[in-house]
Design a protein around this nucleic acid. Structure first.
Length: 574
RNA sequence: CGGGGCGUAGCUCAGUUUGGUCAGAGCGCAUGGUUUGGGACCAUGAGGCCGGCAGUUCGAGUCUGCCCGCCCCGACCA
């Protein structure tokens, strides 16, 4: 491609973009915004996406995935059947056809694929199947952000596995995990595999492939030593020695705390640390009030509480329930004097003595409260969320807080979709079973953003060869110098004939402009045809590296060829 | 949905406080010339519904109200 014909409008400055990677994608002429959360991919961006898609495609095919293409427009009725029409609510984009039939734009494709398989699969002999597609998804996100990181319309590879039993799903799942590792390695993205919750879709064994990045949207807790990592809402941690209190219990004191309802307010007002306060959270467990106690600097995990209590539903109590239990407005609950209510207490409070609690009276807190003496603990349990510093579940090293960009997601669906959509098969005995499913998503457009975020310098993006829009750029410093123009032209021809993807920077621009644009565009192999052209010498260098070599044109061709071959073979197309 | 910011030339922005020589700058673009190894220089020129609507006023880019759009934080989120 000749740069003089290439549609890649570069920009010096952009407003409305905070993330460095996003800015560089805009500046480099890869993407342009159309509306909030909607982007056009320009020729260079589209080429990058296709490279990414092809890597994904190869690795999915390698684990026996079969590519399909499913409709973007779904009858809403299908989503009603699976129960997700209401679950997703307005996030699912809806529209009507001329007959007033309601359709939605595919936010994901479990329904469609399950319906498809349900219609065709009858026998265990037809299983297992793994189908995937690389297609556009639509979600009316409450807040799109970060350019391609979170869009309302975005590219994704979604795969679905269909097996006769859980063991079958397990096997495919493990294979896809390995495939994803290869995909990310080929894109030269480092990643952590973390545990996550099922979210809207549900399912188990939810794992996310995260690029650790400040630009990430998701908070994570990562082990500082081993590979354990999880999102804070599901992070577990290892046994922690809790030394029971050994300080002397002081006399309980009433402390006026006018208007002080939050931990922050109370700590400030009474000059105590959050870890010296015990929060009392009134919850409604199957409709009955329960008091859950956690340290002021901890967060109550309702899921844990639900499990410990063995109830069906758990939620924070409403104002009325709190008033009737504590006889005080919200913000002053405490365990002392509570009657007819179960008090369940986080185990780490065992270590606390003389702590502050609410006084069950407006504008009142109590100081020097002690468990056992001032109130009875009905049950000790682990009730809080993990936090940085907690010991790793696996190796006991401290967990650290981090942020990540979710690149991919895998989980097991069981029969969540096959049951309502009636995807079943007959086994050897003629018995009917619902198909066991798995779901495996990979964000292709998001991967562009992730690479841009990860692999860059102040001058622009530095694309790995595997996903670069072009592999080589030949920069002719001055097209008016015949020696340079001719040498550039012949190099362009030779490299193209070798099958390399080349941009020929032939524009009538100043050298500085061309260099800046080349760096911004991030094409990994640069050949500069300049003042040494008359002596039959050109410069070669890797984008992002300082070193440059003065070589003959033949050596330059050889060098490009070698760099590309070694990069693409190191990927190990398996 | 809550909080904050912004909307003026293709891009980045000034001008809004205090209504009236207030339609501006730099970059980009076009033409001519000089330049040619890291976003050159000179000259000339084109380019604006000052986000929209409705008010206030003799007069609105500037004040008021409503609306729309974009960005950021939060809530939310395969």
């Amino acid at each position: 491609m000749r740069a003089s014909r290439l549609f890649s409008p570069t920009l010096r400055k952009v407003a409305d973009a905070e993330l460095p990677g996003h800015r560089l994608l805009l500046r480099g002429g890869f993407i342009r915004p159309l509306a909030s959360g909607l982007y056009s991919l320009l020729p260079l961006g589209w080429r990058v996406l296709q490279k990414i898609e092809n890597i994904v495609r190869e690795e999915m095919d390698h684990v026996d995935g079969q590519e399909t293409l499913l409709p973007t427009l779904h009858p809403e009725e299908l989503w009603v059947r699976s129960g997700r029409a209401s679950k997703w609510g307005p996030e699912l984009m809806r529209l009507t056809d001329r007959n007033n039939r309601v359709f939605c734009l595919g936010a994901t494709h479990e329904e469609v694929i399950t319906a498809l398989v349900a219609a065709e699969a009858r026998s265990y002999r037809q299983l297992p199947i793994m189908l995937y597609q690389i297609a556009t998804k639509f979600r009316d996100e409450p807040r799109p952000r970060g350019g391609l990181i979170r869009c309302r319309e975005f590219g994704m590879k979604d795969a679905y596995s269909f097996d006769r039993d859980k063991a079958g799903t397990d096997a495919v799942y493990d294979e896809v995990v390995e495939a994803y590792k290869r995909i990310l390695k080929r894109m030269e993205l480092p990643f952590r595999v973390t545990l996550a919750s099922g979210g809207y879709i549900g399912g188990t064994d939810t794992r996310e492939f995260m690029l650790i990045s400040e630009a990430g949207e998701d908070a994570l807790l990562l082990c500082s030593k081993c590979s354990y990592g999880a999102s804070p809402d599901v992070a577990d941690w290892g046994e922690k020695e809790i030394r029971e209190r050994d300080t002397e219990m002081l006399a309980i004191e009433r402390a006026a705390t006018p208007g002080m309802r939050t931990v922050e307010q109370v700590t400030g007002f009474l000059s105590v640390r959050p870890s010296e306060i015990v929060k009392t959270i009134i919850c409604s467990a199957d409709g009955k009030p329960v008091a859950a106690l956690v340290r002021g600097d901890h967060e109550l995990n309702l899921d844990l509480l639900k499990k410990v209590l063995g109830v069906r539903s758990i939620e924070l109590a409403g104002e009325n329930m709190i008033r009737s239990v504590t006889r005080a407005p919200v913000g002053f609950a405490g365990p002392v004097g509570l009657e007819n209510i179960k008090i369940i207490t986080d185990e780490e409070i065992k270590a606390l003595a003389n702590f502050v609690t609410g006084g069950n009276e407006i504008d009142l807190h109590l100081k020097n409260v002690n468990w056992g003496r001032d109130f009875e603990v009905n049950q000790w349990a682990r009730l809080r969320y993990a936090q940085p510093g907690d010991p790793c579940l696996v190796c006991n090293a401290p967990l650290e807080a981090a942020r990540g960009i979710e690149l991919a997601h895998v989980f097991k669906l069981g029969t969540i979709f096959s049951a309502p959509l009636d995807a079943a098969y007959l086994d050897e005995q003629g018995e009917r079973h619902f198909i066991e499913m798995g779901c495996y998503g990979f964000g292709t457009t998001r991967a562009i953003a992730a690479i841009a975020e990860y692999s860059r310098d102040e001058n622009g993006i530095i694309w790995p060869l595997s996903v670069a829009p072009y592999q080589v750029i030949i920069i002719v410093v001055n097209m008016e110098e015949k020696a340079q123009a001719d040498l550039g032209q012949s190099l362009y021809q030779a490299l193209s004939e070798k099958g390399l993807e080349v941009v020929f920077e032939d524009r009538d621009e100043r050298a500085g402009v061309k260099f800046k644009d080349a760096d911004l565009t991030g094409i990994p192999l640069q050949i500069v045809v300049g003042k040494h052209a008359a002596d039959g010498r050109v410069e070669v260098r890797r984008r992002g590296r300082q070193e440059k070599d003065l070589v003959s044109p033949e050596q330059a061709i050889e060098w490009c060829d070698k760099e590309v071959k070694s990069a693409l073979s190191e990927e190990g197309i398996s």
